[in-house]
Amino acid sequence: MLASRITAAFRQHFGSTPLVVRAPGRVNLIGEHTDYNGGFVLPAAVDKEIIFAVALNGTTTARLYAYDNQEHYATDLAALQPGQPQWANYLKGVVAQFQRRGVPVPGFDCVFGGNVPVGAGMSSSAAVECGLAFALDQLLGTHLERMELAHMAQKAEHEYAGVMCGLMDQFASLFGRDGQVVRLDCRSLAYAYFPFDTEACRLVLCNSGVKHSLADSEYNKRRQECERGVQLLQQHYPDVKSLRDATLAQLAQHQAAFDEVTYRRCRYVVQENQRVLDACEALQRRDLAAVGRLMHASHAGLRDEYEVSCPELDALEEAARGLPGVYGARMMGGGFGGCTLNLVAPAHVEAFIQTVGQAYQRRFGRPLETYQTSIVAGVSEVAGPAAAAHSA
């Protein structure tokens, strides 16, 4: 239905037949703020997605239409620069990555829109970047590997949106697999899939409804704190290139060299990497209770050591703890707002949503928005009349 609306809007605005692409958002089961530290993450693509309708237009101009905002924007592709509106930067940044690889990008028309909640920690920005990267790769016949497209989308966010994100969000959007989570080693880029049975356990997202303005600046600050920790460790352990290489014993041995904040940041990352590995083993055993315990431990670390939670997220995790049928809960995403991710037995989902919603309403005086998500495949062309017409 969403794809039909986006395709219809494209024909209305531009009058041609587009290539139609879907790009999913993602959840991250566990492994937060580990990606830019060369560590492990365990995301999955989910059924909240951005739909793109894209076609070449025979000019040197990109004509963009943000369906959800009902905003038009056009830019000369020979003179790309970040600017306003902010949403266009994610798209311009992707085009710039093709150009940097020596790929001439001719003018194109693009309509995009979707149902990935913005500011909820489900990586709507990565879905936007990956969807356009995939569409242009198809239209231009560049046949780039998906990992290359993920890196291009990541660089687009670095250079045009100013957020120094790791690779996880773009990777998850492109590499998702139906019914499975995927563990990515952010150092080697090796990855492996693990079963996640959404019949035995549902993924329920509780949206705090807040997005604190300090999220992006604090995110970049956390990266700098981790880099400072690595520099301190390298004085004693030259082989430590990132916190992925560090151990808790090494940190403890040289704690006196650290300021308290840097020490806590580093300790959290080292512990979180181990939690990802432990969660994968638990999934193979189908031990959801063990996965849930690791999620609660992850939240505690994000709250107390990495300090990227907020009262709303903490209240949601606390309300979920101990409820019937709830295996685990934790904040998800960069922090300071967004969602908690909750693993809930199917028979208890309705009661869970009601109980946590009431607790949130009492505490903060506003309703709680929740989403039930299923795990789906990564970025792909949308089959159907629009796709058939394009391929013909």
Rank of each mutant, 00 (worst) to 15 (best):
residue 251 L to D: 01
residue 301 G to W: 02
residue 383 A to F: 08
residue 281 E to V: 12
residue 64 L to W: 12
residue 135 A to L: 12
residue 7 T to I: 12
residue 47 D to H: 14
residue 89 N to K: 06
residue 249 A to C: 12
residue 20 V to N: 06
residue 127 A to I: 06
residue 4 S to K: 15
residue 298 S to C: 08
residue 94 V to N: 02
residue 209 G to C: 10
residue 380 S to Y: 01
residue 316 L to K: 03
residue 202 R to D: 11
residue 173 S to L: 09
residue 25 G to H: 10
residue 189 L to V: 06
residue 280 C to K: 01
residue 243 L to W: 01
residue 341 L to S: 00
residue 218 E to P: 03
residue 41 V to W: 02
residue 15 G to E: 10
residue 241 K to W: 13
residue 26 R to Y: 09
residue 145 E to Q: 15
residue 380 S to A: 15
residue 91 L to K: 07
residue 188 S to W: 03
residue 170 Q to S: 09
residue 1 M to Y: 11
residue 214 L to K: 13
residue 271 Q to N: 14
residue 10 F to Y: 13
residue 88 A to E: 02
residue 379 V to P: 01
residue 112 F to G: 02
residue 152 M to R: 05
residue 35 D to R: 07
residue 284 Q to M: 08
residue 335 G to S: 09
residue 354 Q to G: 12
residue 170 Q to L: 10
residue 148 E to F: 14
residue 388 A to D: 15
residue 225 E to W: 13
residue 97 Q to Y: 12
residue 71 E to A: 15
residue 382 V to K: 05
residue 182 V to H: 03
residue 34 T to M: 06
residue 192 A to H: 14
residue 339 C to T: 09
residue 278 D to L: 14
residue 293 R to C: 08
residue 314 D to E: 04
residue 108 F to Q: 02
residue 134 F to G: 00
residue 149 L to Y: 07
residue 49 E to Y: 14
residue 24 P to T: 05
residue 200 A to I: 09
residue 337 G to T: 02
residue 87 W to S: 11
residue 47 D to A: 12
residue 367 P to Y: 04
residue 37 N to G: 08
residue 250 Q to H: 13
residue 171 F to S: 02
residue 71 E to T: 09
residue 287 D to V: 11
residue 331 M to I: 00
residue 41 V to G: 03
residue 175 F to N: 10
residue 169 D to T: 06
residue 157 E to M: 04
residue 336 F to D: 06
residue 317 E to A: 15
residue 165 C to W: 00
residue 172 A to L: 03
residue 223 R to P: 00
residue 268 Y to S: 04
residue 176 G to V: 07
residue 214 L to Y: 13
residue 23 A to P: 03
residue 82 P to A: 13
residue 303 R to N: 00
residue 8 A to N: 07
residue 391 S to P: 04
residue 179 G to C: 12
residue 188 S to Q: 08
residue 315 A to T: 06
residue 286 R to E: 12
residue 239 D to E: 14
residue 55 A to Y: 05
residue 179 G to S: 10
residue 320 A to S: 14
residue 347 A to K: 11
residue 274 Q to V: 12
residue 326 V to L: 09
residue 283 L to P: 04
residue 37 N to P: 01
residue 345 A to N: 03
residue 158 H to L: 13
residue 192 A to L: 12
residue 352 F to R: 03
residue 303 R to A: 02
residue 111 V to I: 08
residue 392 A to H: 15
residue 372 Q to V: 15
residue 31 G to F: 10
residue 196 F to H: 04
residue 83 G to F: 07
residue 18 P to H: 11
residue 296 H to N: 06
residue 110 C to I: 07
residue 291 V to D: 05
residue 249 A to Q: 13
residue 335 G to P: 00
residue 148 E to K: 13
residue 70 Q to T: 04
residue 32 E to S: 00
residue 64 L to A: 09
residue 82 P to L: 07
